[in-house]
Simulated assay, not measured.
Amino acid sequence: MTKRQRYSAEFRTKTALEARREDLTTAGLSRTDGSHPTMIGGWTKTATANMASAFDGVSSAEPTISERNDAKLHARIGHVAVGRGALPEASGLIPGTGGKTR
């Protein structure tokens, strides 16, 4: 008994878009990608049906940052900025550098 092939979402999307472009037939795509033509047809139908959700106005690509995380990030940025400001002063304390900075 053979093991069922699992295809990633990226692979299915890429193949469905290639099928929509119609440069190759589904049979030709199946030969190059190694998937079955019926599967490519299903992926293309699913991609076409779900295209409208990409333009529905709700952007799921932007992560929401809570006020607490925002405050943590600003504190971390301040901490890093203060640390970087102290580096040139500390380099003068290293023997052999002569107080030179880059």
Results as ranks from 00 to 15, higher is better:
R4W: 00
R6Q: 06
R6S: 01
Y7N: 00
Y7P: 01
S8H: 03
A9D: 10
E10S: 09
E10W: 04
R12M: 12
K14P: 00
T15F: 02
E18T: 07
E18F: 05
A19M: 07
R20C: 13
R21M: 10
R21Y: 01
R21F: 03
E22M: 06
E22F: 05
E22L: 08
E22C: 08
E22H: 09
D23R: 13
D23F: 05
D23H: 07
L24K: 06
L24F: 07
L24T: 03
L24N: 03
T25D: 09
T26R: 12
T26D: 13
A27W: 00
G28T: 03
G28Y: 02
L29V: 05
L29S: 01
L29C: 03
L29M: 04
R31C: 06
D33T: 15
D33H: 14
G34Y: 03
G34E: 05
G34K: 06
H36C: 09
P37L: 06
P37K: 05
P37I: 03
T38W: 04
T38G: 13
M39R: 11
I40D: 03
I40P: 03
I40W: 01
G41Y: 02
G41V: 04
G41D: 04
W43T: 01
T44A: 09
T44F: 01
K45Y: 02
T46L: 14
A47Y: 11
T48N: 07
A49Q: 06
A49G: 01
M51T: 14
A52I: 08
S53N: 13
S53T: 10
S53Q: 14
A54I: 07
A54F: 06
F55I: 08
F55A: 12
F55T: 14
D56C: 05
D56T: 03
G57M: 07
V58K: 14
V58Q: 10
V58F: 09
S59M: 02
S60R: 14
S60F: 08
A61F: 12
A61Y: 10
A61K: 13
E62K: 15
E62N: 15
T64D: 10
T64I: 14
I65N: 02
I65H: 04
E67R: 12
E67S: 14
E67I: 13
E67C: 07
N69K: 15
N69E: 15
N69V: 15
N69F: 01
A71V: 11
A71H: 13
A71Q: 11
K72R: 15
L73A: 13
L73C: 08
H74M: 12
R76E: 00
R76K: 09
I77F: 07
G78L: 09
